[in-house]
Structures are given as structure tokens and as C-alpha cells.
Amino acid sequence: MSTNNSKKLTGKDFINIGVFTAIYLAVTMVVSCTLGMIPLGYMALSIVVPIIGGIPMMLFYAKVKKFGMLLIFEIIFGLVMIFTGMGFYLLIWGVVTGLIAELIMKGGKYSSANLCVLSYAVLSVSVSGNYVNQLTASSEWVAEKATTFGEAYMSATQGYLSIWWVFPLLILLCFIGGLIGGFLGKAVLKKHFKRSGLV
């Protein structure tokens, strides 16, 4: 293919985006279905999902050489979240973090491995977009449900979110999880995929 040098996205890039969105979606779904059942685990998702997603995402980053791939990735991920009923905040967060991540990658001319990790950490912050749903709905939701479900559960999940420093902490946790996942992914990439010639 002689189009490899051009700046425009080609069909191969679109297919790569689709493949890695599917993988990331599967990882997110599996982790959140197992861990998200417990209130504290639900909070811990913000750090666990970026760590486990780090390995496939670093492989994806090895293929990102053009502007727009991360943004499309986040848009599609957000759209899927809407259609599976997770609310529309993730799309907004995804577009913002996707743009910042793109700019970081562009700054490194899509070749610096450390900037890949930083960019992935920024991208991971979009995971916390799922909590906005509860943050905004919390007061009304608590008032409605507290009578039926008892104060105990409410103080377990809604309570966390109503403390002012918890949401920034979640964002920070996502970022740290992204950094850990990114370095993990980078190590795995070096150990396995480079050696086998996959990248």
C-alpha cells in the first residue's frame, strides 16, 4: 500500500480502531460485571479497568500513527455506552480526553513510548465519566431510593460520591491506573509482541 505515508486515515486504520474498541469494550464489560457488583469494587473500577486495559491499548498505540484514531476510538466507545444504557456523559468525557490524548501524541510525533503512556493515562480519565451519571442524579436518586433500599447501601455508594474530594480522587485514580497500565503494557509489548514481530 502506497497510502501508508499519507496523513489521511485509511480503511486499515478504521478496522484497527474497530478491533481494539471491541477488545477494550470486552475488557471493561468483564471487569465491571465481576467487580462492579460490590459498592467498594464499583469505586475501584476506576483504577482496575485502566490497568487491565493497558496491555491491549499499548498494542493499539503501537498502531496509532495518524491524527484522529484515538478520538474516533473514544467516540465509538461513548456511543456504545449510550446504546447499552450507561448514559451519555462518557461520550462528552471521551471526546475531551481523546482530544488531549491526541495532542500529546502529536507533540511526540507519534513515536515516543513514554508519551504513549502519558496519553493513555489521560485517555483513561474518561472511565470516570461513568460516575458523573450518579453524581448529578445523586440527591434526587438518594431521596427516592433511600426509603426502599435502606440507608446502608446509600451511604455505601452515593455517600462516597457526595463527599467533595471523592470525585477528583476517582479522576486521579483513573490517571494513576492509566500510568500503571501503560507501563505494564509497554513492558509486555517489549517482551512479547516486539520479539514475535507482531508490532
Binding site: 462492579g36 457488583m37 447499552t84 426502599t148 433500599f149 435502606g150 447501601y153 446509600m154 455505601a156
Partner: peptide
Amino acid sequence: TSALVPYLPDAVNILFTGVIAFSTRLIPGA
């Protein structure tokens, strides 16, 4: 859930009931 909750201990309620209640909003969309 709303029928069972008053009879269950708080520990069980914390673990499951809220998630189950929230899932009534997720399952139809999914």
C-alpha cells in the same frame, strides 16, 4: 428487591440490592 430488603441484614443489602435496583434501568437498554 423492595419486598425482600426489610428482612435482610444490612451487610447483604450493601452488597447487592442497590446494584440490582440500578440494573433495572440498565437491562432494558442493553
